[in-house]
Write a protein that binds this DNA or RNA. Sequence first.
DNA 1: CCCTGATTCGC
DNA 2: GCGAATCAGG
Length: 197
Amino acid sequence: MSWTDERVETLKRMWAEGQSASAIAKELGGVTRNAVIGKVHRLGLSNRNDEAEAKPAPAPAAEKKTEKKPAQARPEPAPEQAAAKPEPAPAKEAAPQPVFTPAPRRPIVPAGQPLPPQPSANEISPEALASVREVEKKARKLSLMELTERTCKWPIGDPATDKFWFCGLPSQPGKPYCEAHVGVAFQPMSSRRDRRR
DNA sequence: CCCTGATTCGC
DNA sequence: GCGAATCAGG
């Protein structure tokens, strides 16, 4: 795969959204997170350091453990000048986008998996429910940003309060939830008897 | 251990 | 320019 205009655009967009390099790599496909990071750096958008850091007294030479790696020679003390630059992108590329898509609430969910259903809205078998209660005590209480493809994404608590987190236990391979939550998330239709009291 | 980005350097 | 290997940190 090569960095086509479109792919670069996706890269820029996702990076701007705060997506991780691995997430971007996964989205693009055909590239590793290293490739993404490398590209990000080459594009010069590694970090949007706005303000420059005043370096009053740069430490002289505090290299100590240099003996570890042979390729550490940096014969380029030349001070790079790129400090006071309000606009990271000079007037070079003409990408007229006067209106940035407002798209305000675009929650960043690591996995492309469907969001967990509301557990409370379901009628769950007593056993499974008990199992979940049990598991929730052991939950790692991960925040949204801490979720990965192999952590259970089952929500616990009220999103409107601080008492909210995700299960975070090891998820089943290929599944968005841990074993216990898979049990309550993927119920056979047959078991969902319509028990009208 | 899982993950993150940063950097180097051979290609 | 590209990205694997590596480094450094959480």
